[in-house]
Design a protein around this nucleic acid. Sequence first.
DNA 1: TTGTACGCGTTATCAA
DNA 2: TTGATAACGCGTACAA
Lengths: 353, 353
Amino acid sequence: METFTIKDIARELNLSTSTVSRALRGSYEINPETKRLVMECAERLNYRPNPIALSLKGSASRAIGVIVPQIANYFFSQAINGIEAIAYNRGYHVIIFQSQESYEREMANVQQAMSRKVDGLLISLSSETSDVAHLQEVQDKGVPVVLFDRVSSELNATKVVADNFGGAFAATEHLIQTGRRRIAHLTIQPWLSITQERLAGYRAALEKHGVEFDENLIRYGTFGPDEVGPMIKELMRLDSPPDAFFTASDRLAVGCLTALRQQRLAIPDDVSLIGFTNLNVADLMAPSLSTVVQPAQEIGQVAAERLIDQIERKHRALPIETVKIPTELIVRDSSSRTADHAALFATPKTVTH
Amino acid sequence: METFTIKDIARELNLSTSTVSRALRGSYEINPETKRLVMECAERLNYRPNPIALSLKGSASRAIGVIVPQIANYFFSQAINGIEAIAYNRGYHVIIFQSQESYEREMANVQQAMSRKVDGLLISLSSETSDVAHLQEVQDKGVPVVLFDRVSSELNATKVVADNFGGAFAATEHLIQTGRRRIAHLTIQPWLSITQERLAGYRAALEKHGVEFDENLIRYGTFGPDEVGPMIKELMRLDSPPDAFFTASDRLAVGCLTALRQQRLAIPDDVSLIGFTNLNVADLMAPSLSTVVQPAQEIGQVAAERLIDQIERKHRALPIETVKIPTELIVRDSSSRTADHAALFATPKTVTH
DNA sequence: TTGTACGCGTTATCAA
DNA sequence: TTGATAACGCGTACAA
């Protein structure tokens, strides 16, 4: 399976490369018979245009750059899955970069993506990023940018996000409706768009139901595995400790559970509501936890669709908008959990040994 | 942050592009003063060589292709994370392709990677792949190939895999030592290297301890969410049903648990051993399940290191070898699980409401 | 020590 | 309708 160029076809047919090129891309006036010959020959030789040469020439590279903070994160890997699926169907390749939550590295990524002549850029901002000048520059060069999940209001670009407000609202309301009043909210860096939207949803639900908002129950940060424990301990030592937890990530959820276990603390049966996880994680956590499921894959798909739409109709002005993908609240109530748990941990009944 | 070329530097300094090129790559005899000037100017303009032009020129593209069956799979996303980390440190970009477990698409991926002039290829075979001629061709063109996780014995290339035999052996032996004799093994496609190695480890452990091997307890396949249930039901209806499960993937593990729950079947407390999951999943599954943890990230790192070593010392013949990365067996015994579980599901003691 | 010219694969422009 | 040529950015023989 050698790789043939336009030259090979030209030589084969005693034509010039330019004629072959025209025939191949169907453009311009050309002898139908010549065209047929070229197409036939290209088919026979399994000719594929060299994307590198195309990029160098300045035309489309048919590659899109994707910059995420971390690949090894269920949300992002699912999102990338969605992106890749759409990109593949529409004939694009995906070049992946990790910012590792570093602003420096994100800027380097953007430069590298540009120098690789990507046709468009899909990015979820690092947690360190507040200034978006580097993305503005990309746009200024005429390369479409679509933000997803971690977005910035300072950039005038299409954004695709989960309905963070709605998800947080539903989660909080559910907790309130099951009798909780002291709902701790463990979340990530306060300046991220997703953090703010979730907090807003949380507050709105409290307000609607006349539950007092208590700043002491909110914890922000990038918690390492060893930092969640002390934080939980601190919360539980409050005069009026939490009777529920609503966390902004599956990492925090797991950290929270682990901490409670290690400290041999208990919270009421159906209280702990784990927010914003991915569907697979939700499955694994079942039957113990309720969950707001993030539509990771769908976010990736929609973002990729929007980006490619923009790439392919650069001339027309496409509307810049923010697309909100709905979240899903999976509630496991006390009874179902107890039943599940009973089955899982019961003494043997079916098996003898 | 415009992008400057070698030409800009040449014009700026009234030099020819070739002089600048030489100065930049330090090669050849060149006036130290000129070199200094060029370097200084390049620094000032934040010059970055255009990778596209480099690739077209035929020299290194400083990109490596990574082909995996699925990105949205904990194992592969972690592996990619490891790959990207190493690649980044050594100045390479990662272009990702998904074969979606399709042989056709894997071949297309390989072609695309080649036409993007990757300097090397890292691949985990699709489950449909048995013929590796497409990879042989890549090697024949002088492009290094490293296989990881899902490898083929038919290709003479460096391979990086988990110690599947050892992990399966340890897991099975643990089950036997805790009194189990009817250990079901739920696994994936029988022709995959990893499947065979794990099965061999399982059998070796049985043999060592004089436990009879029963073909009826082995189940192969690509089980969808709805297929695990019936399979478990079937197993439990055997005259002598299993008293333990050893599964080859976290998906199967979760499917198995869900099925047991749904069917309200119970197996003894510390019996179900879940094999071959990734560390994060193991965390989530705790406290209920013992686990053989796959060193996904490390596999990715080692594979990337080997590949880049081969890329950068193409001239010397590097040894072709198979690297086995150890697995880790995390055992949760009955008592710890009970304690964990008690903390997690206990009636409230710390919280009043 | 430095400059000129060519080629990598392709497309666009202009001439035939 | 087709062919020759320049250009994209770079490295490198070869000439100066």
